[in-house]
Amino acid sequence: MNKYVIEASGLTKRYGTSTVVDHISFDVASGEIFGVLGPNGAGKTTTILMLLGLCDISEGKVRVLDHDPVREPLAVKRRVGYLPDSVGFYDHLSAADNLHYTARLIGIALGEREKRIEAALARVRLEDVADKRVATFSRGMRQRLGLAEIIMKDVQVAILDEPTNGLDPQASVEFLELIRSLKSAGVTILLSSHLLDRVQNVCDRVALFNAGKIALMGTVAELGSQVLGGGFAVEVEAEQGPHLALRLGAIPGVRGVEEPAEGHFRLLCDRDVRPEAAAEVVAAGARLKRLAFDQPSLETIYTRYFQSVKPGEARHAA
């Protein structure tokens, strides 16, 4: 059994003279949630379409579940579920009928269809509108119906293109919850998005796309140390303690202490030093008010990264 469910190497897509996806390589391990991030037009959707065999590959190799999407598209599409960017359904059919049509296309046996559709609709909490026409559905409901289709299909890999795009905060939190439950059912998930804070919470690893290339790849923490110059930050708020800054700075692993405000310390360190910091504050006889571990946010990483590459971009354009 192969550890990786998606393996892409040197994947390239050209339209005429413009290269939309430029020699990208990545692997997605079984059971993980892999985030594909990047600005619009960075080549995320094109990459996804190439994985599904819905778009020709100009150069490079890709294997999905040990099948070649170009030569064996049916084998790939049987095991992979795809939720396109702002998915559409046949408006004049009911939710259940839409799923029935897909179920017949997939080739689910007649006896099993009803059961699986019902179960899938219940999973995404659409069972009470199963017989309503999709025309009346909100955007969030359509997205959920798309996810129900993937659940019904019983796939090994789910590819979701901008799944939370255009959803209100409440709906997108619910949706990410559903995605997490898919993961716990053993489905590998590839997720593309530009809504970073949402994605940060669900993705195991992310790849940052920029102008057809993968700029950065790894866990959020890894990206943080690459882009932000590394390290963690621990915030401490404490009242009255002599030489507290010095004492905190003496903790092993702490590289520096800032004091942006009176009684407010920011420790830059190589590891999580919260326990030692707490002990140190108490030992100094000060009163600890707040202790927080500041994880690098994907948004910060993203913004910082694109600020750093902007000048290069401009030269490209000229």
Binding site: L54, K77, P84, G88, F89, L105, G107
Partner: peptide
């Protein structure tokens, strides 16, 4: 225009 094409074509049919 109803954005159903890519969803249908991602099913195992040509």
């Amino acid at each position: 225009n109803h954005r159903t094409l890519s969803r249908i074509l991602s099913q195992p049919i040509y």
